[in-house]
Design a protein around this nucleic acid. Structure first.
Lengths: 239, 239
DNA sequence: GTCACAACTTGAAAAATAGTCAATTCTCGT
DNA sequence: ACGAGAATTGACTATTTTTCAAGTTGTGAC
């Protein structure tokens, strides 16, 4: 017998069931499209049961976001296993990010929604801690890669500090994903995908930061497919 | 007598009144905090009157966002008047962005909300066109500056294309503003403001893109306050 | 001045959806 | 098989968005 009783396991499974279905509804119609009556109907439990698992609608949405975030932390951790110069590992983080975006339709929208003050305030503390933890884990992975880069001299010690670089990379990712998740922005960009633009922009940014090897000296575009196949062979298709 | 009749003017003024108050409520409590009963009470008109001006709640929110966006276009246009190398003008765009962010509390959150598919779908077409127009105007300003940079050789013709750079800059702005508008991310960053990190990151990115003069050769940090005072003397304090 | 007409405003009620709770059903140790 | 306690839910309330028909106001023709 496992540590958890059967009942506890069933409870946890149902929590996951609710989150999974809520995720689907959120992806389809955003916050406004998540209707608890509808959700209750699809999971074949009563609405009141949902309220046993979650404090309120906002709490449920945060739970969905935390679920995404945990998967993100897991994917980021895989990036650490890539062998090569640290900047390639940071590059792998970008790939993890991309794979997740394909996985989870409108995932960034949900993540953004979750960080909204008006939503956050209404959620349960346990949920908030889950978020903080996943967040710390993701950032920790990035910090570790940067520490390695500093150690081997690829990143100058007197250059920009770690916080600045993390903020820059998160901003680039978050901003551009939100841009391309919403209504299409650039109608005319048929030859390039949002993904390729994102990758190029990470390269420019890290070149600007002075993280060696610089992209003119190292063909990151050629390396990326290999990293993707090696670290994320289970990458699912977009929903 | 002007082109508009008195009634038309009154109507337009009230539209503005509604938008202004809705903006205040949105800034305070996000989408969830915008209550139409409350809004009707504060503007001292009935709720049904609001529905004469706007198709529905989503339409009103988009109107608020369009209002922000128009102001943004106006501020961006001012950046064009700055004299100096084109990159300084692009730098001025960043300052415009920053001034707006201080102006309008949670403005980026509202802008992001407006680009959400589930919201967009419910809005009136006229509103959508207003958004497109303001968007095109902002982007147009950026493209113009880049054209100037190409013309004088500060930006290599064989380098990254304009769309990539615009997307990079928008992402950096949007991503980092959303990051700092929500709950605080970096507790420990007492010595640096989100604003200074943003500026530094724009500099890194544009250095990476190879837009001359590069930041090590040109003290953009020293120039910024002067640009701000010259172009945005009316900059209001944060709400 | 007044009448007809159109445009505007609104109170009140419908519709939609979040949230609650007492009654019922289920589980499990004895 | 029984009863205590936990889990579940149907049916309810509360809140907020949305509609609509009746009433009001302003306008221009005569």
């Amino acid at each position: 017998m496992s540590i958890l009783t059967r009942k506890q396991r069933e409870w946890a499974e149902r929590t996951q069931l609710i989150i999974r279905e809520a995720d689907r509804l959120l992806a389809a119609g955003g916050y406004l499209g998540l209707n608890l009556d509808e959700l209750a109907a699809t999971i074949e439990y009563s609405k009141a049961t949902i309220y046993n698992h979650f404090k309120n609608k906002e709490d449920l949405v945060l739970a969905v976001a935390v679920d995404h975030f945990r998967r993100r932390a897991e994917y980021f951790a895989r990036a650490l296993t890539h062998d090569g110069p640290p900047r390639e590992r940071m590059c792998a983080i970008g790939i993890a990010d991309e794979v997740l975006a394909h996985h989870i339709c409108n995932g960034f929208e949900v993540m953004q929604l979750a960080r909204t003050k008006s939503l956050w305030e209404k959620t349960a503390e346990a949920q908030q801690l889950g978020w903080q933890e996943a967040s710390a884990q993701c950032m920790g992975t990035c910090y570790e890669i940067m520490a390695q880069a500093r150690a081997c001299g690829d990143l100058a010690p007197d250059g920009p500090n770690d916080e600045t670089i993390v903020m820059g990379l998160i901003s680039l990712s978050k901003g551009s994903h939100l841009l391309s998740e919403g209504l299409p922005l650039f109608e005319g960009m048929n030859d390039v995908t949002p993904e390729s633009v994102r990758f190029r922009n990470y390269d420019f940014y890290l070149d600007g930061v002075g993280w060696k090897p610089l992209s003119p000296d190292h063909d990151y575009d050629a390396i990326r497919p290999a990293i993707r196949d090696a670290l994320f062979p289970d990458a699912e298709q977009p929903v």
